[in-house]
């Protein structure tokens, strides 16, 4: 699971904080599928990922509920 932590380290402080908060709250309860989906989301470049989190863009294949959890942080 540390892999999720490390890949949540980003070039933008905004993402470091939001993703860190998300993991603090939900990491322990993520299903294998959710963890996989989350890793997929982390593949987006920083600027696009920030757009996705702030609702300016939509990702291709990430389940909505996971995205909603991240957006709440």
């Amino acid at each position: 699971m540390s892999e999720l932590r490390w890949r949540s380290r980003r070039g933008m402080l905004e993402l470091d904080i939001v993703l860190g908060r998300f993991l603090d709250r939900h990491e322990a309860r993520l299903s294998e599928d959710q963890a996989k989906a989350y890793l997929g989301l982390l593949e987006y470049p920083d600027a696009e990922l920030w757009d996705i989190i702030t609702g300016k863009g939509e990702p291709e294949a990430v389940e909505k509920p996971l995205l909603e959890l991240i957006r709440m942080n």
Partner: peptide, 12 residues
């Protein structure tokens, strides 16, 4: 690089 290259702080 510690992180994937395009996640370096230059993006900020």
């Amino acid at each position: 690089s510690k992180v994937f290259p395009t996640r370096s702080h230059t993006v900020a």
